[in-house]
C-alpha cells in the first residue's frame, strides 16, 4: 500500500480504529485535540462509539465502563488532562481491564505549556494513580512506529489484561510524516473479566504472576552500535532521533559511541544493558530535572556496571538538537560536567 502523509495525532487515531478500537471518550486539550476531532466523525461513520466527555475524569470513567463490557476502549489527553485520569486508570488496572490511553506529552507542571516534552516519564512508568500497579508504556520515535504500536496495543492490553499507555510528544502529534496504514483487524468483543479481588493473599499471589509476566515478556528496545561503545547514549522518542544522528556523526570522527533507545518504557529494557561496559552512560531527555537517568542508573547496577558514571542532559522544554548533544558529549569527555550517579 502507498504511503500517506499524515499528522501524528490523526494517524494514531486511525491506527487505533484499524487495530480494533470500538469506543472512544475524551476531552479537548492541546496538543492532542486532533485525535478526538478526527474520531468525532470517523467513528460514527464506521459504526463505532464516540463520546465527547465533560472532563477527563468522566472520559476515563466511560472507558472503564466500556472496557468492563468487553469493548476496546481508548482515551487520549495531555498534561493536566492525563493527571485527572489517574484515579480511573488505577481502578482499571485493579480490575485487570484492558484499554489504551494516549498521552501526547506537553511540557510542564500545573498548566505547563504547549511545548513538546517528556516531563511525564516518571508518572507514566510508575503507575501514576493510587496503589501499586504499572501500565505498559510504549514510546514511539516516529509516526509510523506510533501507528504500529497503536495497531497492536489492544492485542497487548488484552493478552496481559492491563492498561497500555502510548506516550508520544507534542512534536510527534503535530508533525506530518509518510506512513503506511495497516488493514482493519476483525473486531472481537471480550467476555467478562474477573478482577483478582481486593486486598489479601489471594490478590497478592495473582497480581505477582500478572506483574512478573509483563516484566519478563515485554522489554522492548533498539540498540545501535553499543557492543564496543565507550559512551552509550540513552534516549527515547524525539531525542532518540537526534541521538541516532549523533552516533553516526561521532562514529565518523572515530569516537566509539552507541545508543540504547527504550521502545517500551515500562517494563524498562534492562536486558539492553547486559554485557556492555562503557566509560559512561548519557541520557538525553526533554525535561527539567532528568527522570530516565534514574532508571539508567538502576539498569547499570543491575547489569554489573554499577560503577560506570551516568550523566544526564535535560533540555527543559525544547528537544535537544545535534549541537547540544555533541557539546554535552565533549563536556563529559573532558570531565567538565558532573555525573548524576
Amino acid at each position: 500500500m502507498a504511503k500517506e502523509l499524515l499528522k501524528g495525532n490523526e494517524a494514531l487515531a486511525e491506527a487505533a480504529l484499524r487495530g480494533g478500537c470500538t469506543f472512544y471518550s475524551g476531552y479537548p486539550i492541546t496538543p492532542q485535540t486532533e485525535v478526538m476531532e478526527y474520531l468525532s466523525d470517523r467513528m460514527p461513520e464506521i459504526g463505532r462509539t464516540f463520546i465527547q466527555a465533560e472532563s477527563e475524569i468522566a472520559a476515563i470513567s466511560q472507558v472503564m465502563g466500556a472496557a468492563w463490557t468487553g469493548e476496546k476502549a481508548l482515551t487520549s489527553s495531555s498534561g493536566p488532562g492525563v493527571s485527572l485520569k489517574q484515579e480511573g486508570i488505577s481502578y482499571i488496572a485493579h480490575n485487570n481491564f484492558p484499554c489504551v490511553i494516549l498521552n501526547v506529552c506537553r511540557w510542564g507542571n500545573g498548566l505547563g505549556s504547549l511545548d513538546s516534552a517528556q516531563t511525564d516519564y516518571n508518572r507514566e512508568t510508575r503507575g501514576g494513580g493510587q496503589g501499586d500497579y504499572r501500565c505498559i508504556v510504549m514510546a514511539p520515535a516516529s509516526i509510523q512506529e506510533g501507528v504500529d504500536m497503536m495497531y497492536d496495543a489492544y492485542d497487548v492490553a488484552e493478552e496481559y489484561h492491563n492498561p497500555v499507555v502510548i506516550l508520544t510528544e507534542a512534536m510527534l502529534g503535530q508533525m506530518i510524516e509518510g506512513v503506511n496504514l495497516p488493514e482493519f483487524k476483525p473486531v472481537k468483543k471480550l467476555g467478562l473479566i474477573r478482577p483478582y479481588g481486593r486486598a489479601g493473599k489471594d490478590y497478592m499471589e495473582k497480581y505477582a504472576v500478572h506483574y512478573n509476566r509483563m516484566v519478563d515478556e515485554l522489554e522492548r528496545w533498539e540498540s545501535i552500535q553499543t557492543e564496543d561503545a565507550d559512551y552509550v547514549l540513552v534516549a527515547f522518542g524525539m531525542p532518540s532521533r537526534v541521538c541516532t544522528d549523533v552516533v553516526s556523526i561521532l562514529r565518523g570522527k572515530g569516537e566509539k559511541v552507541g545508543l540504547i533507545r527504550p521502545i517500551n518504557l515500562w517494563p524498562f529494557p534492562f536486558k539492553a544493558f547486559e554485557g556492555i561496559r562503557p566509560k559512561a552512560f548519557i541520557t538525553v531527555e526533554t525535561n527539567e530535572t532528568g527522570q530516565l537517568v534514574d532508571d539508567v542508573a538502576i539498569a547499570a547496577k543491575k547489569s554489573g556496571a554499577g560503577d560506570v558514571p551516568v550523566y544526564c542532559l535535560a533540555t527543559h522544554h525544547e528537544c535537544a538538537d545535534e549541537e547540544a548533544v555533541l557539546d554535552y558529549f565533549e563536556k563529559v569527555k573532558s570531565g567538565s560536567v558532573k555525573e548524576r550517579y
Partner: peptide, 24 residues
C-alpha cells in the same frame, strides 16, 4: 464553544451549530 482549544463543542453550543467535534 471551547475557544482556546480551537472551537470544540461545548454544552452551550446551539442545536445544529457546527464545531470541530460536531462537524455535522
Amino acid at each position: 464553544n471551547f475557544g482556546m482549544t480551537g472551537g470544540q463543542m461545548s454544552w452551550t453550543t446551539l442545536p445544529g451549530q457546527t464545531t470541530t467535534t460536531s462537524k455535522k
